[in-house]
Design a protein around this nucleic acid. Structure first.
Lengths: 236, 236
DNA sequence: CGTGCAATTGATCTAACTCAACCAACGTGG
DNA sequence: CCACGTTGGTTGAGTTAGATCAATTGCACG
């Protein structure tokens, strides 16, 4: 019996964002019992492959992930990033297979939540039902928050603001964070080249909007950033 | 009592795609009873406004809709199109308000499905639960199917293919259809200008890939279109 | 029968891409 | 411990895909 005891939702840093929200002690322990197993991945390691049979949702316990497919010309197309307390995998329900690869951006851990099991549990626990839909809605909102077909400057500004609000959501500083993403990840997600991303970051730095040291980033002027993003003021 | 009798799921053309899938007679009648009311809209009429309080999902009975927001500079940013048997509105759950305007592209009808009521019903009807999640997953998949940051040609080709498979899904011809969208709608969704869209359509026509007469469109060579979508042909 | 909107096509212009050089940090093996 | 390749990031110069500006046509409709 050398197996490491399964970590519980009770001592999980993401519990206040994730499925346990609104559940009582007993319900959380049911949820816990249902989680198939936790996966710990190193930077660059892959969790899911395109066309893998859909079986489960995944919740990020710590770290971060990206989903991506390969274009016909071999270039990576990034579809989304997933941070602490966010769920992913439901894109696989309709076709019963995952429509993308998923890999870890840094040392990370996810909880695997078998689809059939949670479908059963939500029938007994209405508040779990609501929280699951809320987390799915969150994913839609995240995707909506970064227009990927406007001017490059707008895209990057909107992307940084979106990251900011997601980090804030997970209890971290909304203005100072270490990006787990490379410039290439950002570029691929936004549909730009690394050079353009790099130049824009320099531009924002020179405009006193952000401070940058490699992956370490500090948003100094959110209002200016919103103007760069060309968003209606009340959007954030 | 001059009110028009509410139309039932039973005689709805979209029933085989929509929430009733997998439900028995009794369950469908419960679902029916729950639908708040049907809205009939003319072309251009709006159903939802940005920041409206979230209360309901909507299912397209016939016709089509688009969701959009206005940029700071007043230009319309289109987020999605919704066709027969597709659901929309769940983007509003997280923030308890809709993050976009929704308006009809042609004479259309939607069923309003109050969130609290359906949350109750899915607890009693597990297969409704599954179908709801499947329809939400469908939305994710649709959004994934059209990359909006590749070359213009790839975007338009992928978009046409995505339309094709959605029309097929709703029992219509996958190769011959009348677009309810204007060139401007397509351009705004894909992040292009109408001129570029128009030129590409001409290019596809000249390449014998499609036939076009205004909004009437015929896909003549799906394989070629897939090549256009995956990779610009002239790169070979 | 004009007025206005949607679409097409042509001529220029520019934002972002490509190609290229360079630097810094890091790990690995001799 | 240093030499070296590798990976990630920045910056510059020239090129191009798609935007902008502009003119024209066709069609719908009051």
């Amino acid at each position: 019996m050398s197996e490491v005891a399964k970590k519980s939702c009770v001592n999980c840093a993401a519990a206040s964002l994730c499925l346990p929200v609104g559940l009582d002690q007993a319900e959380i322990s049911h949820l816990n019992a249902m989680i198939k197993r936790q996966h710990i991945l190193k930077r660059g390691q892959s969790l899911l492959h395109y066309t893998d049979r859909f079986n489960s949702f995944y919740a990020v316990r710590y770290g971060s992930f990206k989903s991506a497919t390969l274009n016909a010309d071999g270039r990576e197309q990034i579809w989304g990033f997933y941070f602490v307390g966010e769920l992913f995998g439901f894109e696989g329900i309709e076709q019963e297979q995952y429509p993308y690869d998923v890999l870890a951006l840094e040392k990370s851990e996810v909880c695997e939540i078998p689809y059939n099991d949670i479908m059963q549990l939500v029938n007994e626990v209405p508040s779990l039902q609501k929280q699951l839909l809320k987390l799915m809605s969150h994913r839609f909102c995240v995707d909506l928050s970064t227009p990927r077909n406007n001017a490059a400057e707008e895209r990057l500004a909107a992307f940084l603001l979106s990251l900011s609000s997601r980090f804030k959501r997970s209890g971290m500083s909304p203005t100072e964070f270490a990006l787990p993403l490379t410039r290439q990840d950002i570029a691929s997600y936004l549909g730009l080249t690394i050079e353009t991303v790099s130049r824009l970051i320099s531009k924002f730095r020179k405009a006193q909007v952000i401070d940058v040291d490699g992956r370490q980033m500090k948003l100094k002027d959110l209002r200016k950033l919103q103007i760069f993003a060309a968003l209606t003021a009340d959007k954030f």
